[in-house]
Design a protein around this nucleic acid. Structure first.
Lengths: 340, 340
DNA sequence: AAGTGATTTGGAACCGGTTCCAAAGGATGC
DNA sequence: GCATCCTTTGGAACCGGTTCCAAATCACTT
């Protein structure tokens, strides 16, 4: 059987209050007593029970992490950041993997029903009005990561700057000399579709405007599908009358579709066409794809830091932070072929 | 403040033992009493405290899941299976994401030091002799997933059948008419490298032998690197005197390398060369790659079932199960081009 | 009506920490 | 030596469940 705080007290010849004080680093213990207690702890190989601690503290020492489809790169990277920050703290973490709207509802209901966790971190999910309210009145610290639309009062938000990412892409292409730039983005209609794609588009538009280039609607395609649909859209672009010299796909999967389309159209990358993706997934390097590396890991890390800070100092102001993405230039972009 | 079991007892006009019995579905409560208690629970919106429950039960109601690099497809899929099985049970789950040998040691030490969790599920990590022993004497239920070498007494193992997977690949290629089959596999020297790649090779060899085909060492290459190294190995194969008509890559990333090599060598897939991967990662469908789909999700699911079962019935015998993989035939394999 | 055994019920004790208050101990000043 | 004040200490009470035992209730016999 494990030793308890009472065993330690007996062994060290002190009261249990004193042992508790030593464990928690209270300053009001005489040095000589502290040493005696630490020795007893050592000898008995005593480890305080986290569960008893929780009960008497009235805290769960647990944080909920709510994510959609944790197979996605955008999610696993953030989770890595979260885990890295949390490990070593005294908090545990429970996961809610959300794959259907029903599960999302159930999860949030369970969470708001207090006493389950001390705080929650929500990734890439937008709360409904009702859910926001419920959280707000439950007064449970909450941090949202990648939730552009849930700017709830008092709730911290950590975002990766997707508008800026879109700009970076276009500025890179412009600086290479491209003027006709096509875009294939993800619409925001699919369930659990983050707004990120739309924002990347916005950044893209802004950069073009800033460069004084007129927006040609024919060059902007959206799809709610996957790589396959992106390939079809790309083919349409490439076979149009006045095809673009570069295509920006709003994620790396779409970029694969674009690469395939180019191959089918008999074009060679990057000589006939420049291609840029977004996310810097593992295979992007394989495909030598120029892409954007958003700070996913860092956003998870930062989100958890903010949450822990809030848990330690209840009166902390909410944080609103946006992390700058990074452009990764690889072999899929080059200056456009001079007009024949 | 949350209602407690005592509030419920008072409201229902019964003792607290009775309330506890109702909550836990004990049969020895009169129907009429049960109804009264349930009504009080309803009215007070009472939810029993999990923490208090843990303390008095002397259980943590928590399961540890230890994984290496949870960005890998093989890991996230299993985690999905684990999560799906666990959600809805009364257990929580804490993650240990292991990215260095030191963290692995630290994690296992923390776990074995009991009272932290009730059981553990370890994915794709091989325990050292010492760790196995420590677990064994701590008597904590343990389930290993994808740990071919840690056949510890009394510890359940759930594996995906990699030997069989290798056989499936070769049998498929043989049935198409291929006779010279090259292989590019991952060596087992990298840290945290699962034995899986080696076993796939074994299956491959067995199938060839069974078909009466002599093993040509020149056709079997191993590398500890990634896709890039696989590409180089593939080029070496393709440029050899008597090149294979099909190449089996022991994972889908390697298969990308092979596809690239083929393109560089001016070969067209599948007409000049058949390529098979392993894992059925997301991009395999994109690349129209014939591959093997191991039951990762299912192995996670099954592992957790076994663990929960063991936690419920302490005397349960350990389970040793192996899940059959599935061959996914796509467009990257075809009968070999008839000899010119 | 009383006796018997089975069923149902109440609540003290317990799980292992934390906290708070009263009391003991120690230092200082006069 | 004694009063005063600050530091240190001991331990009861508490957190909110579960468990177990004794007591109460009930159903049935005789």
């Amino acid at each position: 059987m494990q030793a308890t705080i009472r065993d330690v007290a007996k062994k060290a010849g002190v009261g249990l209050g004193t042992v508790s004080r030593v464990i928690n680093g209270s300053p009001q213990v005489r040095e000589q007593t502290r040493v005696r207690v630490l020795q007893a702890i050592e000898e008995l190989d005593f480890h305080p029970s986290r569960i008893a601690r929780r009960l008497s503290l009235g805290k769960t020492l647990t944080i909920a992490v709510v994510v959609p489809f944790f197979t996605r790169h955008t999610v696993t990277e953030r989770m890595r950041g979260i885990e890295a920050t949390l490990s070593g703290s005294e908090y545990d973490m429970v996961f809610y993997n959300i794959e259907t709207p029903e599960r999302m509802q159930a999860a949030f209901r369970e969470l708001a029903q207090r006493k389950r966790v001390d705080g929650a971190l929500v990734i890439s999910l937008d709360l409904t009005e009702e859910e926001s309210q419920r959280f707000q009145q439950s007064n449970m610290p909450l941090v949202l990561i990648d939730a552009h639309f849930s700017q709830v009062e008092g709730v911290s938000c950590i975002d990766t700057d997707d508008v800026r990412g879109g700009k970076l892409v276009v500025d890179h292409l412009l600086s290479l000399g491209h003027r006709r730039i096509g875009c294939i983005g993800d619409g925001a209609n699919a369930p659990f579709q983050s707004m990120a794609g739309r924002l990347r588009f916005d950044g893209c538009h802004q950069a073009l405007k800033a460069a004084g280039i007129e927006l040609a609607p024919a060059l902007f395609h959206e799809t709610n599908g996957g790589r396959h649909e992106a390939r079809l859209e790309a083919l349409r672009l490439l076979e149009s009358q006045d095809p673009p010299t570069a295509i920006f796909a709003s994620n790396d999967s779409f970029a694969i579709g674009v690469l395939e389309a180019a191959r089918e159209a008999g074009m060679s990358i990057p000589y006939d066409l420049s291609v840029v993706g977004y996310n810097d997934e593992e295979f992007a390097e394989y495909l030598d794809l120029t892409t954007i590396r958003p700070k996913y890991f860092e956003s998870g890390q930062r989100g958890m830091e903010v949450l822990l800070d809030r848990l330690a100092n209840n009166d902390r102001e909410p944080a609103y932070e946006t992390l700058e993405p990074e452009l990764i230039v690889r072999g899929s972009t080059l200056e456009p072929r001079p007009a024949a």
